[in-house]
């Protein structure tokens, strides 16, 4: 873990432009994955709509910045707040009506889609043209000429989310979330405030995804509904957890570290075969679901425990 961290910190000082962009992609997926991990991996509420939170984060900071001159740092915090509220709203509605499993996933998906359509068609929200972030190179406005600083900031975000998960997993909140995932009914009988905890998990998870959303907007300088609210963002939040191991601390990090380079590799190897990289993506999902349900990290942990007992 420490070696990995050290490598991640040193990385930008050795990497070229191309490698840097891959590094950012890895971290972005890791951040999304970890945010999903809180709500779905730990609390067991399966989200298929993390794009909703990501997009709300990206749009809140961007519109506030472009139209009102609010620093994206502040916009990021406001976006996180907005996404947390959205999470609580989705959660409250769903849990009030006892939605679970597939139906809960469908509700989260529907919310993301509604937001996409809404942003696509509302002039006040910049419509389908999206938002172009003007480049100013002022750190107070979350802009840097040096990509390495962007990278390190994102690394810091990933570390923050991971540390948060690490801390809660040893405390009441995290232990109770796992209890809720495994059996909500039993958790209730033991006095766990199930609704409150699930909503809290959704709020934190939404806020974390929104943070990644703001980063995305500032780093790439352009967002539109088709990129930040699309279901492929939601899938990008899920896949690293599946590959690495959901409900584990380092699983999603490992997952992101494997998938992104693999994608890049297949992209460059089979440049002219349109779609092959996505076929590989699909095969990867299928193979892991079928043969390695706990993910790589989960399988490792299980093997270790198996040896001990």
């Amino acid at each position: 873990m420490i070696v990995l961290l050290a490598a991640a910190v040193i990385f930008p000082f050795f990497a070229g432009r191309y490698m840097m962009s891959i590094g950012v992609s890895v971290l972005l997926m890791a951040a999304l994955g970890q945010s999903w991990n809180i709500m779905s991996g730990y609390a067991g509420q399966f989200s298929f709509g993390h794009a909703a939170f990501f997009g709300v984060g990206a749009y809140t900071s961007s519109i506030l910045y472009v139209d009102y001159g609010v620093s994206p740092w502040i916009g990021m915090l406001l976006g996180m707040g907005a996404a947390a509220l959205l999470g609580v709203l989705i959660g409250f509605l769903s849990f009030r009506y006892h939605l679970r499993g597939d139906f809960f996933a469908l509700v989260t998906l529907a919310f993301a889609e509604i937001l996409r359509v809404l942003f696509n068609n509302s002039a006040a929200l910049k419509g389908a043209e999206g938002v172009l972030i003007p480049y100013r190179d002022v750190w107070q406005e979350f802009q840097f000429r040096d990509d390495r600083i962007f990278y390190l900031i994102l690394l810091l975000m990933v570390i923050a989310i991971t540390a948060f998960i690490g801390v809660i997993s040893r405390r009441k909140f995290g232990v109770c979330l796992i209890a809720i995932k495994e059996s909500q009914g039993v958790a209730q009988s033991l006095g766990v405030p199930v609704l409150k905890y699930k909503l809290a998990a959704m709020a934190v998870s939404g806020a974390a995804a929104a943070m990644a959303g703001t980063f995305y907007a500032q780093y790439y300088g352009f967002i539109d509904p088709g990129t930040v609210f699309t279901s492929s963002i939601s899938v990008e939040a899920i896949v690293p957890c599946i590959i690495g191991g959901s409900g584990t601390l380092s699983g999603p990090l490992l997952g992101a570290l494997i998938i992104v380079p693999l994608q890049e590799l297949s992209n460059s190897l089979f440049e002219d075969v349109h779609g092959l990289n996505m076929v590989i993506y699909g095969v990867l999902i299928v193979v892991f679901i079928m043969f390695c349900r706990d993910g790589i990290y989960g399988a490792l942990v299980k093997r270790q425990k198996g040896v001990e007992t």
């Binding site: 499993g101 599946i242 076929v279 095969v283 999902i285 299928v286 679901i289």
Partner: peptide, 15 residues
């Protein structure tokens, strides 16, 4: 669990 089957069909969709 339900979501594993859901994800499996998602993988199939990509393929």
């Amino acid at each position: 669990p339900a979501y594993n089957q859901l994800l499996l069909t998602l993988g199939v969709a990509y393929i």
